[in-house]
């Protein structure tokens, strides 16, 4: 299984991150300096890493504004988070959100179609998720509040705080 993370290049604004930052302010939570949002994908199937790199660069990221990382993983949690986040410092909290099993994942469905168009004939399974990097010193309890009140609906999604 492969994990792909897509980042906005530093010189461009991250509008979704800024939006979440302003939404957080109405939760009454201060002291968060910046939020970066990045989409996550898991690709599973009988495919080579070159294929996955092609999927990441041709399909999942924008050549002008974004860059991406591809790494192997055996399951959702086996990735060393530090290696995949640029400029990580101790005051960064990471929240990852995924749909629960069985919940319709439209992004994943459209990736499955698009992978075929890239000439990759092997069947792939795809899962799409979200990652938020929150810069600032934030307690676990507050992170839980941010996720449950704002970012994820635990009825259909599961989350992890790192």
């Amino acid at each position: 299984m492969f994990r792909i993370e897509v980042f906005m290049k530093k010189c461009f604004k991250n509008p979704k991150g800024s939006q979440v930052l302003s939404d957080i302010s109405w939760l009454g939570i201060k002291n968060i300096a910046k939020i970066e949002y990045c989409p996550l994908y898991l690709i599973d199937g009988d495919v080579k890493i070159e294929d996955v790199e092609k999927i990441a660069s041709e399909l999942l990221s924008d050549k002008v504004t974004e860059f991406c990382t591809v790494s192997r993983c055996s399951d959702l949690n086996s990735i060393n988070v530090n290696s995949s986040v640029p400029s990580l410092s101790s005051s960064v909290s990471i929240i990852e959100i995924w749909y629960k099993k069985g919940v319709t994942d439209t992004v994943a469905e459209s990736i499955v179609k698009a992978v075929k168009d890239l000439g990759i004939t092997k069947d792939v399974k795809v899962k799409a998720g979200h990652k938020y990097c929150l810069y600032g010193t934030i307690s676990r309890a507050i992170l839980d509040t941010i996720v449950t009140k704002l970012l994820a609906n635990t009825l259909v999604q599961e989350y992890e705080i790192k």
Binding site: E58, L59, V107, S110, K113, A114, L118
Partner: peptide
């Protein structure tokens, strides 16, 4: 096109 779920126009552009 194709829902634009990944990024607008990209799936059709690739196709």
């Amino acid at each position: 096109s194709y829902g634009d779920d990944i990024a607008s126009g990209r799936v059709l552009a690739n196709e």
